[in-house]
């Protein structure tokens, strides 16, 4: 794809874990990311959804080079950056910015809003002068919807509301004028009305600035509004990916169906049968053989214990990794 900004090919990230017993010879690994491939297009919003622990944050950190990939490839703007040097990575991070999970913890409480937003500029040595620095900070704050910026520059984080704090975090990411935003649960901790505000802001940034966004969340409820495509992750792997409407209205993987069924509909008249998967996502140290979802899958068959399904086409640009849907679309 010519207009791809960020691409992952067969990406893997294993974390070694202290081996348990005294006689255990084989080292153990957490398979946080286990063969993930996707492309993020220019000005595209790709949502990555899945339960806690499925590897969403690790994916973002690995793309950003904050965690080194165990194997596979990462390309930014057509360039392979998998084994980039620190200097090259730093250069890349000007263009790929991350918004971290918690707006309450990711702001330094002793720094003013102005200093917080200016920090990335200083780190990258990008401000030509004091005036330039201030102009960029003001522009970023206003782009993040904190208007007029002058009202915020000298305030401390605790003097702002949750939504305003999250906007400061976004301003800090925007100040470098990145091409890509990796947004890790940017609204999960926020109140409904603020959530709408931040989602609309992200949608607008894509429109006005052509920014590409990887939107990470466990809540399928928030993605319909502005994601172009949805990738559903389970235990370190993408099990379904496709255009937002296709995934929401015609989900193919049993896991996607379950995830969709538990998003509470905001109307009691739409209460429906929920497919509640019991337990938590299994431990990514011992990935189940065959299809990794089979132990929790409500429709698993005997063969699902044997073969590990790969992503196959189930529609135009719509893929799912489930033995039960293989071959359905080809015929």
């Amino acid at each position: 794809m010519s207009d791809s900004v960020l691409e992952a090919r067969h990406l893997r990230k294993l974390f070694p874990v202290a081996s348990g017993g005294l006689f255990r010879r084989r080292p153990l690994f957490v398979h946080a990311i286990d063969d993930v491939s996707f492309t993020l297009g220019k000005a595209e919003v790709l949502a990555v959804v899945g339960e806690s622990g499925c590897g969403k944050s690790t994916l973002a950190l690995t793309l950003l080079g904050l965690e080194r990939a165990t194997s596979g490839q990462i390309c930014f703007d057509g360039q392979d950056i998998t084994h980039a040097s620190r200097v090259q990575l730093n250069e890349m991070r000007r263009h790929v910015q991350m918004i971290f999970q918690d707006p309450y913890e990711s702001l330094n409480p002793t720094m003013t809003i102005g200093e917080i937003v200016a920090e990335p500029l200083d780190v990258h040595g990008l401000a030509a002068s004091r005036a330039d620095r201030e102009a960029r900070v003001i522009a970023a704050l206003e782009d993040a919807g904190l208007k007029p910026a002058a009202n915020y520059l000298n305030r401390l984080p605790h003097e702002l509301s949750g939504g305003q704090r999250q906007r400061v975090v976004i301003a800090g990411a925007l100040v470098l004028e990145p091409q890509v935003l990796l947004a890790d649960e940017p609204v999960s901790m926020l109140d409904v009305s603020i959530r709408a505000e931040i989602l609309n802001l992200l949608a607008e940034l894509r429109q006005t600035r052509g920014i590409s966004i990887l939107f990470i969340t466990h809540d399928l409820g928030t993605v319909g509004y502005f994601a172009d495509r949805i990738a559903v992750m389970y235990l370190g792997r993408i099990v379904e990916i496709g255009a937002t409407l296709d995934v929401l209205q015609n989900p193919q993987h049993p896991y996607t169906k379950a995830l969709l069924s538990v998003v509470p509909a905001p109307n009691p008249r739409l209460r429906r049968q929920r497919i509640i998967l019991q337990g938590e996502t299994p431990n990514p140290i011992a990935i189940p053989a065959g299809c990794r979802f089979h132990p929790r899958c409500p429709v698993a068959e005997a063969r699902c214990r044997e073969r590990d399904p790969v992503l196959v086409d189930v529609g135009i640009g719509h893929e799912a990794a489930c033995l039960l849907v293989e071959g359905i679309w080809d015929s």
Binding site: S161, V192, S193, I194, R195, A196, E197, L199, N200, L220, G221, T222, G224, Y225, T244, L245, L248, Q249, L260, V263, A265, P266, N267, L270
Partner: peptide
Amino acid sequence: QELLRAFPDLTRPGEKLTAIPGY
């Protein structure tokens, strides 16, 4: 009414969310 309009509804994707302005 406004609170309901600000809440994402999976059954109506594509519709715009309406944030409640102000605080």
